[in-house]
């Protein structure tokens, strides 16, 4: 067993990893609550946005231009998907809506591999100005980017919770995610609210993609399927509770990194998100709450 002083840095790195999961996990839940769609293309959209930013920056564009394009790409693409495929799928089961976004994931993934090939051993990365500063904690450096992502996670947790609950647009989104037709009968401009929800979520996806490309890697495969691990946190939050998702993401990150220095368990540490999610899901289902319902109220 590692000593306490050896473990300390893993606590810090675990929280940073948790911040990564939180960013996309919270993003998934926010989207789900606002649109009623589990947007599994979240990672792919962010990855493609970040790759576009990378190409622009490599071609000589200023950094901020690349970042804005990345975020806008996420927003516009997601808006486009939502506007085209939202209505025909509106009355379908959440499961069908989620699987349809897997279709988008496949399309984006194929496009990314075509356009940003690795046939020459290319390794890409994107750095943000916030990488350079930071402070030292438990013998290791914490960059402002990590702080930023954690902060964004917290801001989302607090902000979107309040937004969805207290603003009229937020209320309209929740109502719409729950039942589009009834919401429409109540006089809510469904199309516009939907558009706002999709666009906002896409922007979030682009923003997350940019940060994750910096924190994890600028790699289409890694970022696209990071969603699977992040989904674990969202599932623990039952796709509903943003604070629980945020907390679960931190716990998953901590567990994962704390297992790293423990020789006997280190090979299995990558199971942590899946095992924790499975335990949580089963525990909740045993206590017979919403989990066994197929349609959630947002």
């Amino acid at each position: 067993m590692p000593s306490w002083s050896e473990l300390q840095p893993f606590i810090v790195s675990g929280l940073a990893l948790g911040g990564v999961y939180a960013l996309s996990g919270v993003g998934l839940v926010v989207l789900y609550r606002a649109t009623g769609v589990l947007y599994l293309a979240f990672g792919a959209v962010g990855a493609m946005g970040a790759l576009i930013a990378y190409s622009l920056i490599s071609a000589g564009a200023p950094g901020w231009a690349g970042w804005i394009v990345c975020v806008l790409f996420g927003g516009v693409l997601t808006l486009g998907y939502g506007m085209i495929f939202g209505p025909p799928l509106a009355r379908r089961d959440p499961l069908v809506k989620a699987v349809a976004t897997l279709g988008l994931t496949l399309v984006l993934f194929g496009v990314m591999d075509l356009l940003w090939t690795s046939s020459g051993g290319q390794a890409r990365s994107i750095t943000l100005p916030t990488d350079n500063g930071g402070f030292s904690l438990a013998q290791i450096q914490v960059t402002w980017t990590q702080v930023l992502s954690l902060g964004l996670g917290i801001a989302l947790t607090v902000g979107t919770g309040a937004f969805l609950r207290y603003t009229s647009l937020g209320t309209a989104m929740r109502a719409m995610a729950n039942d589009r037709e009834i919401t429409a009968t109540l006089g809510v401009p469904v199309r516009r609210v939907e558009a706002a929800a999709w666009f906002g979520c896409g922007v979030l996806g682009g923003l997350a993609g940019l940060l994750l490309a910096d924190l994890v890697a600028l790699d289409a495969t890694t970022l696209t399927f990071l969603v699977i691990s992040s989904l674990a946190a969202a599932l623990i939050g039952q796709l509903r509770s943003i604070p629980v998702t945020f907390g679960a993401a931190l716990v998953i990150g901590l567990v994962h990194d704390l297992l790293t220095p423990i020789t006997q368990l280190t090979d299995y540490r990558d199971m942590s998100p899946f095992v924790l999610a499975a335990i949580a899901l089963l525990w909740v289902s045993r206590h017979g709450t919403v989990m066994s319902r197929s349609r959630e109220e947002a």
Binding site: P9, F10, S13, G14, A16, L17, V20, I140, V216, A217, D219, T221, T222, F225, L226, S229, G253, H256, D257, T260, P261, D270
Partner: peptide, 10 residues
């Protein structure tokens, strides 16, 4: 693909 490169490096 590595998701937590920090812990690997540590």
């Amino acid at each position: 693909p590595i998701q937590s490169a920090n812990s690997v490096a540590l």
